[in-house]
Amino acid sequence: MSIEKRMLARELKLAAARPGDIFKPMWFLMLVISMVPLALSPDSALLADIGSAMIWVATLLALLLNTEHLFQSDFSDGVLEQWLFLDRPLAWLVGLKLIVHWLFHVVPLICITPIAGLMLSVPTDVLIALLMTLVVATPALTCFSGLGAALTLGSSRSGILGVLVMMPLFVPVVILAAGVLIRATDGSEILPLIALLGAFSLVAATLVPIAVSAAIRLNIGGSN
């Protein structure tokens, strides 16, 4: 069995052993969404206006919540150290880890956003646009928050520092996604912006793993 297949099998087993890790961010997302009408007003016209943006922000927060400790357990049980000895570039393994994380932990989040959309009475065409933006934009967000997680690996008292450090870099993604949502509400063309978001994700997915691997190397080198 190749290294990649074994890695995938291990991640599958880990995900199956800790279903809470997948479930908790979804739970968090639904809680944040239920706070919106409570804090604002149950008026469905108002909710429909801001609903899609609220869902976007809530999904972003939920994603940050479950990516914060992405490399922590692999770091403390020495798996990351073993990665250095494999005959594969570290950036490649990191990229795989990020893809698997996106599949197991971010896609479930995206899957429940339609329910949140219904609860905030978001119109169907906007909801479809929202789903498209989330699918193409979350890979970039996963990569960046993964970098935050890797940079703060070595320090035990970092808390949510990784999130704080990386969040300013989310700005272009959030702005483009907001542009898509505004256009979807107007009924104008959204595909060019979706393509731009996709391009951003692709560039992030190729370049960020290199930075993440540098950050991991640094933390492993520093600990001995």
Binding site: L151, G154, S155, R157, V165, P168
Partner: peptide, 9 residues
């Protein structure tokens, strides 16, 4: 973020 990261390590 930079100042915070430096302070944490």
């Amino acid at each position: 973020g930079l100042i915070g990261l430096r302070a944490a390590i």
